[in-house]
Nucleic acid binder design. Structure first.
Lengths: 64, 64
DNA sequence: GATTTTTGTCAAGTATATTTTACATTTTTC
DNA sequence: GAAAAATGTAAAATATACTTGACAAAAATC
């Protein structure tokens, strides 16, 4: 499913997908696919995203 | 680096690598490699491991 | 101390995360 | 409302997560 927590955390930092992608050293398409919920990123990428957005793993990638 | 938090959470549940692997539907070698810190699992696998060990992502996979 | 269970590790193969290029659509800005 | 920026998406290629099978070493059990 879509990752709206990530999308809103990115909005809160006023970053485009492309800017976030560069901060994380991945392609824009990868960021897009993760927000869209298409796939299953690696933990290292999740951590990079969290650090770029000042969030933790539980805040962005945990569901009950 | 080694994931000692995961190793000790597994010990706390008295599970072998093989038993944890079965709970997560992966091979024992994958669990071994993650504990050893050799590589970079996907977030879905991390979540499966957390649920099997009654921990959250931050507890097992977050570093400052 | 012999047996069994658990763990480390390697090599070759398969599945899939991620990239690159590219174009269309939507949203923002002037 | 035209121009620019941001996003959705698709196909083909590449990198790497993960599997399978196998053997040796270490730790636990008797």
């Amino acid at each position: 499913m879509k990752n709206l927590k990530m999308k809103s955390a990115r909005a809160a930092k006023d970053l485009s997908q492309d800017q976030l992608a560069k901060l994380c050293n991945v392609s824009r398409q990868t960021i897009s696919a993760i927000e869209k919920g298409d796939y299953n990123p690696t933990i290292n990428l999740c951590v990079a995203i969290c650090k770029a957005l000042d969030k933790t793993l539980d805040e962005l990638f945990w569901e009950e």
